[in-house]
Write a protein that binds this DNA or RNA. Structure first.
Lengths: 217, 217
DNA sequence: AATAATTTTAAACAACTGTTTAATACAAGC
DNA sequence: GCTTGTATTAAACAGTTGTTTAAAATTATT
């Protein structure tokens, strides 16, 4: 009696379940036995298919990235023909949904956020593959919004201000859920939050980069 | 031969070392043996003075809060006679330093940030004692800045935008250190970041709350 | 059909975990 | 000095961890 309920081979099943469990528990608290149990495979399978628990984690992380980018492609944000303000709004909305989606898709970003908050050796690989491109895209959008050329470090600061507003919903979710539970209730609420962040950021950008004109009427 | 090098009694030494180790490793990865080893006490001491590892963690967290508020009091931000814009700047600067100080003081906030990102049962106590007052203070400042009365949820959103920009430096520090290592290099750099956040937020607030006047010249 | 290669299994491994125990050392009180 | 209560200790406990092993089952190859 083989327990393989799915057509999926053991390797893939392990990978998917690993994302699930690592996202829930983190690397250390997650146990190989729990992963194997949920995947309906023997305990030894992890060491057979992947070399070790750590190698499985590494591959699960990479897999999570591939999945998020597959499920939430950011075509519209990439479209340079759109006005940059709109690109920013699309970027933020997409990013926030990617972060906060609680469905199975959301597990992937949960795992990623965990890796950022408490990095392992796997973070360095993650940087180049997934994070740097995102950063570059947002940098590009910001530069388009503030038309005049500005110092590199200024763009960095704007970028962090925008990213910070988004990531807060992920990293401090435990607090937001307790204080303002209705802010992340559903997809509509998430979109409303995204719109606020876009508005807030665009307001700041326009005010800060149109210099020396009408501070207060 | 008793190893008690310090005058501090065992109880206090355990508490201080616990903050250190829990901040470095998190609750689960931290081991009782490591804590006792660093405190130069026997392994059984944790269960003798505190009931369990979990109870020690809970007390260490409370201790960390007391220490941060003792070392970084926010008198200036509380001073209602100051103009609210200045209060905001002081609040952000103080908050950011509290978060990012790498000296021994910084360990406390590291532990707290960890608890927020990956909460245990101890979070609920933490909310009322330490977080709600901070939130209330910032809410008050925001309301003063936008003079007209606004909807509660609007204030919440502004608040999260400001907090988010600050917390990003803490929760995504691993990434910032890799991308823009000079942004958190020293106290001056931290202050510069704080000033940016204050400027950015004030710009957004003034633009968003002075409606229907000169959008673009 | 027989052989070879791969996959799956249960059991054991050694290391580490938080906690308990029971003996010892130490101090204070009378 | 002796007793009492507290503090400290080394050792052991029972449970869990990631990993290995060697046999069994399955699949692929000839």
């Amino acid at each position: 009696m083989t327990q393989s309920t799915a057509i999926e081979p053991v390797f893939n099943r392990l990978l998917q379940v690993a994302v699930e469990v690592f996202a829930e528990c983190g690397f250390r608290e997650a146990t190989v036995r729990e992963i194997c149990s949920r995947a309906n495979v023997n305990v030894a399978s992890v060491n057979y298919y992947f070399r070790s628990k750590e190698a499985l984690y590494s591959q699960a992380l990479a897999f999570a990235f591939r999945e998020t980018n597959r499920l939430y492609p950011q075509d519209a944000a990439l479209d340079k023909s759109l006005p940059p303000e709109q690109r920013l709004a699309v970027f933020i909305n997409n990013f926030l949904h990617k972060l906060l989606d609680d469905s199975q898709l959301g597990l992937h970003s949960k795992l990623i956020a965990r890796e950022i908050a408490d990095p392992t050796n796997a973070l360095d690989d993650m940087m180049e593959t997934a994070i740097v491109p995102q950063i570059a895209l947002l940098e590009d959008i910001i530069r388009q919004i503030i038309k005049e050329p500005v110092d590199k470090v200024v763009v960095q600061r704007y970028l962090l201000s925008i990213f910070g507003q988004c990531l807060m919903f992920k990293h401090s979710r435990s607090i937001i859920d307790r204080l303002y539970p209705n802010l992340i209730a559903d997809a509509a609420a998430i979109q409303a939050s995204a719109e606020h962040i876009a508005q807030f950021s665009l307001a700041a950008l326009s005010r800060l980069t149109l210099p020396k004109e009408q501070t207060t009427p």
